[in-house]
């Protein structure tokens, strides 16, 4: 049971197909791991279905069916699909993440404190990353000028707003300072989508922020 579900308005944005790719990935991962949110999305999809069913028919040009029949004459019905296989070394990755993983992708140590894999996701997010924190370790104290979306994929972490476990979703409002610490046990792995470069607020922030804003760290 997810103790921190995504806000319902974001589940609606997701079910309506309105989210940019980075945020859609965050919601897809949350929904894959949180049954209650999955049920809400199922219900919203049913609303989509009812809206389509309730549409008056738009005129379709007469040849449309003929063209479609000609096309399906050349297309095989595919065998029943199965969820994407787990990616070697990424056993914890839920199915929606798998298409974003590439062979040879590896963790990169940042500021000597945590590991990061940046994902190549098109859209308007500034950065879409996987972060890994060793138990008891934290991220440097920082704040976000824009929104930040976090989904916990392995282990757990605690910050001023609460304790987060696998499947939990957090929306960090802009400007809030926070310092998450990984819980004891296995390393904490999360997907983070940030809209704008983060700002470090700790003692080294003054020196490091220019590097952060240039995407070097």
């Amino acid at each position: 049971m997810s103790r921190h579900p995504a806000p319902e308005e974001l589940l609606l944005d997701y079910a309506a197909g309105a989210l940019s790719d980075g945020r859609a990935l965050a919601l897809a991962l949350h929904v894959a791991l949180a049954p209650a949110s999955r049920q809400t999305v199922d219900q919203l999809n049913a609303v989509g279905g009812a809206l389509i069913e309730g549409e008056p028919e738009a005129l379709l040009d007469d040849a449309a069916l003929e063209r479609a029949l000609a096309r399906v004459g050349k297309v095989m019905v595919e065998p029943r699909a199965v969820p994407a296989a787990r990616h070697p070394g990424f056993d914890w990755a839920p199915p929606p993440l798998v298409p974003h993983l590439r062979p040879g992708m590896g963790w990169r140590r940042i500021l000597g404190q945590f590991d990061e894999i940046r994902l190549d996701v098109p859209g308007d997010a500034y950065r879409v990353s996987l972060l890994r924190l060793e138990p008891g370790h934290g991220l440097p104290e920082h704040k976000h000028p824009g929104y930040e979306y976090t989904v916990c994929l392995q282990g757990g972490y605690t910050d001023a707003t609460g304790n987060y476990g696998v499947g939990d979703f957090a929306v960090g409002p802009g400007g809030e300072r926070h310092e998450p610490i990984a819980d004891p046990g296995e390393p904490c792995i999360s997907l983070i989508v940030v809209e704008k470069p983060i700002v470090l607020t700790g003692p080294w922030g003054r020196w490091l922020n220019p590097l952060v804003s240039r995407g070097i760290i």
Binding site: I52, E53, E55, P56, E57, L59, L65, A68, L69
Partner: peptide
């Protein structure tokens, strides 16, 4: 397929 197309294609288009 033709039956399904006749029912849903115009509705999807309208949607």
């Amino acid at each position: 397929f033709a039956n399904l197309f006749r029912h849903f294609a115009p509705r999807v288009k309208a949607f």
